[in-house]
Design a binder for these strands. Structure first.
Lengths: 216, 216
DNA sequence: CACCCGATCTGACTGATCGTCAGATTTCTG
DNA sequence: CAGAAATCTGACGATCAGTCAGATCGGGTG
């Protein structure tokens, strides 16, 4: 299913090849952790991996393609977010707990992949479809689950139907992603994450159920 | 107050110099509209402006500094967002209208400056303090006004004080910025902006007041 | 108008990186 | 161990970054 690993000129990579390829990806990821995206150079990645630029180009079209590879792995891992939103009971205290878990899931996921997600965000905003697709893969599942949840609440008459479920779900997901992506920003802005967490959960809960969260 | 326009080596630019400088900025901005950030080259900007790379370096340290210049102008214009959040009456229908106006303000502002804001977002997430400061300048004022509004509501006992006003305000602003920055994404995702607008406004209203918006 | 002088621009250069290719090196196979 | 396949790399032409000394421009002056 994952398909075989191939070199740029189409040959299937063997054991050794896969190892170097992986090493290049690891070094690229480390590079992105420490340098601005614009300053990441193939030559530096190659040097760090103890190989030559020519080798890099044997496995990747360019830097973007390599990042896309990392991003795809990330997207697989991202499916864990989906499980946090689906088949939850959103009423009452349990619902608020679900909202908290969802918020935590986003915060943690973004902490794990921050530099990659930055690039994915930029590239998809710039209209790169490959990156857009990755972003979708991560967010679409969550949005879908939330949409269903909101539709259920509306069916029960708990929420006014003056809001489109998918628009609300999309907005909530965008919010979660944005806040998760600016955790450092919040911190250095005198806003503590431990205060942001309840704010996020509250908004998710209110967005889904249309109600104030239960007092604890 | 704006200070005189200076060349890199400290000379004050005259009439002609300022004109070239501005032309370079304009071309850079146009370039960012159409090319990925990573692919914007000094040589292309210079060519488009009908001048040479050496001239570019006479006025700007590097591409980032030039973008920062554009971003600073943008930040000035961004102060219009602040007025949308301050001294509003957030109760009842008027409050919901205020929330709508705020959402519209964000959507419009991001539409005006999308490519620049993308870069500002990336660079500040990457830890570049100059860009972080610009981002702050735009968002901090709005956040402050919203914080006040929430504090007022809490003082009146309308909202539970289990949420920190500034954390909630920061979260709402992050949400507004994120959604505004992904307008194209939403559209191509089958979610119409006209549906997102009420979702956004509703969340802002609920975040500030702790209540469901009034039915219309 | 001819000249001058500061402001402005640019050609040309060095060095770094990109991206490619043919050939060297390593690993695998029988 | 020989031969083949896989893998790696040195070397190269092209492009771009960034610098500097000198050419050009344009307004003011006598």
């Amino acid at each position: 299913m994952t398909g075989q690993v191939r070199t740029v000129d189409g040959r299937v990579a063997g054991r050794r090849g896969q190892a170097t390829r992986q090493k290049l990806l690891d070094c690229l990821r480390e590079m992105l952790d420490t340098s601005p995206y614009r300053d990441v150079k193939v030559i530096d990645v190659a040097r760090m991996a103890g190989t030559s630029p020519a080798t890099f180009y044997q496995y990747f079209q360019d830097v973007e393609s390599a990042i896309l590879e990392i991003a795809n792995d990330m997207a697989k891992d991202g499916q864990r977010l989906k499980t946090l939103a689906e088949d939850q009971n959103w009423s009452g205290k349990g619902g608020f707990a679900a909202a908290e878990a969802l918020a935590d899931g986003f915060l943690e996921f973004w902490r794990d992949y921050e530099p990659i997600l930055r690039v994915v965000d930029l590239a998809s905003a710039e209209g790169d479809k490959r990156f857009y697709k990755v972003r979708q893969k991560i967010l679409t599942a969550v949005t879908g689950s939330l949409t269903e949840a909101i539709e259920n609440m509306q069916a029960k008459g708990k929420v006014g139907d003056d809001v489109q479920p998918n628009a609300m779900a999309g907005t909530l997901v965008a919010m979660l992603a944005a806040v998760a992506g600016h955790q450092k920003g919040f911190e250095s802005w005198n806003i503590k994450m431990k205060d942001v967490r309840p704010a996020l959960s509250t908004l998710v809960f209110m967005g889904v159920t249309g109600k104030k969260p239960p007092t604890r």
